[in-house]
Design a protein around this nucleic acid. Structure first.
Lengths: 171, 171
DNA sequence: AATAAAGTCGATTAGCTTACTAGACTTTTA
DNA sequence: TAAAAGTCTAGTAAGCTAATCGACTTTATT
């Protein structure tokens, strides 16, 4: 559970939260249904949801007719919150706090840590301003429901960065 | 060796490269001296340098009087290169290539992958434009040499992001 | 009250990754 | 030829990742 790296578990968490966002105000959804619709390992998802519940991002209803639901509307839940709970700080090394300390105290390497902090700030700016509602909206190719997977006509959702085609082969 | 997370090993690599940058054009430097000056585990550093050599970032001179040196001037070596060799792609999940594929093919989750790609692009912009010379220059508190660790008068190097003071405790 | 349907919780696990260390070997200089 | 360097293969303890299992508790329905 270390810095800025979205694990498989983190991706599962984001998918589950998106599913709950799509079904917001439909009451509690069973783990089984989330797992089925998003194709996630049910028992593992159980643990993930528990963590998100302890972090007060979702809430549960126990017993028959129980399940999980978001504690806030999708427009008020940001990707950063989910990622921090499951995968920890957004910084590429340590966390913002310790980086600031290192910048003050490890003079020979401070410039390096400043760059790490810049990277974390850049990531934070993006992830703290993108809500579940934002990505749900962007995914409105009506590809959300069930297994549907048709091709409209070049939907090109969201005015994001254009990736040249080549230039780098990496990440 | 996975996405956007600088490991301890990656930090060692960056420190070693900065040391070589400081001693650029002084000929080959022995592993032992790099390890001593930067306080890195010598045997581990050996492996790191070997990887950087295979990646053609540094070159070695074998035998007595041997050692390591940068293959290019510090102003032409970017942090991204070093991090990619040691810690892999800059994306928070997978790599840029596979994210682009997922954006095209996993319609239900494309918006999520687009955000991941935005994050990787933001990190890449920073790390691909910061050279060893840049951080060496920023560290010109003359704190570079040996164990010196004095305090000048608020050097505040580089016009970077101001961090409010609180607001988040994390990331 | 009994039963079934749900979430809760603790333990366990195979496989991988991380951060090393050890030691034998090769190359080069003096 | 001896000493000083880098090279290379192996090994390893500890921790993490992505799960699974089973027993337990809570709640709704009959």
């Amino acid at each position: 559970m270390n810095p800025m790296r979205v694990s498989q578990k983190g991706l599962y968490a984001l998918q589950a939260m998106m599913m709950l966002a799509r079904h917001y105000s439909q009451g509690a959804i069973r783990i089984r249904d989330i797992a089925y619709e998003e194709n996630l390992p049910e028992k593992f998802l159980e643990l993930i949801l528990l963590e998100l519940k302890n972090a007060r991002i979702v809430e549960s209803v126990r017993g028959a007719k129980g399940g999980y639901q978001l504690r806030h509307p999708p427009s008020e839940i940001y990707l950063s919150e989910i990622i921090r709970v499951i995968d920890g700080p957004l910084a590429p090394f340590g966390d913002a706090e310790s980086l600031r300390e290192l910048i003050d105290q490890d003079l020979p390497h401070r410039a390096l840590y400043q760059v790490f902090l810049q990277v974390r700030d850049a990531a934070a700016r993006i992830l703290e301003s993108t809500s579940l509602a934002d990505i749900a909206k962007a995914s409105e190719t009506r590809a959300g429901r069930g297994k549907s997977r048709r091709k409209k006509k070049e939907p090109r959702v969201m005015p994001m960065i254009v990736h040249g085609g080549k230039g780098f082969q990496d990440a």
